[in-house]
Amino acid sequence: QTCAPASLSLPHTGAAMSYLSGAILIILAGVLWSTQGLFIRLIPDTGSWAILFWRSAGMLPVLALWIGLASRGSILSEIRAVGWAGVLGGLGLVMAFSGAIYAFQATSVANAVLLFAASPFFAAILGRVLLGEAVSPLTWFAIILAALGILVMVGGGLAGGALDGNIAALASALGFAVFTVTLRWSKLANMLPAVALGGLFSMIAGAIALAILGKVVLIPLPEIAISALMGAVTLTGGMLLYTLGSKVVPAAQATLLSLVEVLLAPFWVWVLLDETVSRGTLTGGAVLLAAVLLNAYGGRIQRVQRARPLSVSRLHPEDI
């Protein structure tokens, strides 16, 4: 349930990070993200809109602190700088965040996280349609392969009564894709203020939905604590770790390393809550993961090809 950050202004660390350190940070980010489904399973009686509200409330202080450190206190200026692109991206995150929470409640955690992995393919299609970006033949093949895997998984959901959860997971992946393409359209150098807007809009959407449904925002304190912890630590903390690590790890390899989220999320609920994985999820998920790996491999090949005019001795270890 993640949006791999594309670009983010970071506070100056004073020392260069090694490739190994960056890879470890990305893996740790995946570990944090993988606990989202477990935490949501721990509060099964809390509605998705209440979780969205309080998780977003937990996100905002951490994001404000990070933006403040990166901009030396110019938080409002940074938020205004993202303009309408940041607003559109933030609205995309509302769909991503709310869809993910509902998916974790309505379908298996394995189904949800595997379907979230379709986000890069939605982004490739939207980038082609809206921005005219070229899509390589290998990526088109990966998109077709991913679609087959999704059909198998969603078909299993139809048989098992979890179709709405699968659709919500796909809507979440589409929301993250909208966010990604919006950033590319506007060429934003810093995406963190747009994420903050997404958190703010999500709080507003959660409050409005609760009011329409006649439900209260105030839920039991333990459930508020769990929801806010997800926002502050597992979601935002993981995003910051990923972004720090991606400074020294190429995007294609970062994508592969972050797949630890997909592997661990079903593991936590299996070990702690005895939630099993269906055959349809295993089959369709394997096809979808193969498509993700193929797409990441294609990204690495393109990176190496762009660097080919340079001397081989100038390639960095992460390019190989």
Rank of each mutant, 00 (worst) to 15 (best):
V262G: 03
K187V: 03
G155N: 07
V113G: 09
P61H: 10
G231Y: 04
F141L: 14
P250F: 06
A6M: 13
L130Y: 12
A207M: 01
S56Q: 08
F116D: 09
A16R: 15
V31A: 13
V262D: 00
V287Y: 01
I226A: 02
P44C: 10
E78H: 14
A209T: 15
A118S: 15
Q302K: 12
W66L: 14
W140R: 12
G214D: 05
S77D: 13
L293V: 15
G299S: 07
I43N: 05
A106Y: 02
A286V: 12
S202W: 02
G86E: 13
W84T: 13
A291E: 07
V154Q: 04
S227K: 06
R306D: 10
G68I: 05
G161N: 07
K247M: 04
L288E: 03
S71D: 12
A85F: 14
A142W: 11
V109T: 09
E78I: 08
W140G: 07
V271W: 00
L88Q: 15
L259V: 05
G89N: 08
L183A: 07
A16M: 14
L138H: 12
V217R: 01
I125F: 12
L148P: 00
G160L: 10
L293M: 13
I51D: 12
P250E: 09
L131C: 05
L115D: 02
S71I: 09
W84N: 15
V82M: 05
P5H: 10
L289F: 06
L10C: 10
A171Q: 06
L28M: 15
V31Q: 02
V287D: 02
S77K: 15
P5Q: 13
F122K: 09
L25A: 15
L148T: 10
I320E: 10
I101H: 11
K247W: 00
T182F: 01
I27M: 13
L76C: 14
P266G: 06
L257P: 02
D164W: 09
G161R: 00
L115S: 05
A225M: 04
P222I: 03
G214Q: 02
A254L: 06
L63W: 11
L151E: 09
P220K: 05
A307F: 08
A296P: 02
F116L: 09
W84Q: 14
F39L: 15
V152Y: 02
A112K: 05
A123Y: 06
V249I: 08
G155S: 03
A100R: 04
M230C: 10
L52Y: 04
L65I: 15
L138I: 12
L42M: 13
A251W: 09
V82T: 15
F176R: 09
S9E: 08
G284L: 05
G30E: 04
I150F: 11
L264R: 04
G22F: 12
A194K: 00
V181E: 04
L151G: 10
A159C: 01
R80K: 15
G238M: 04
V82Q: 08
R80G: 15
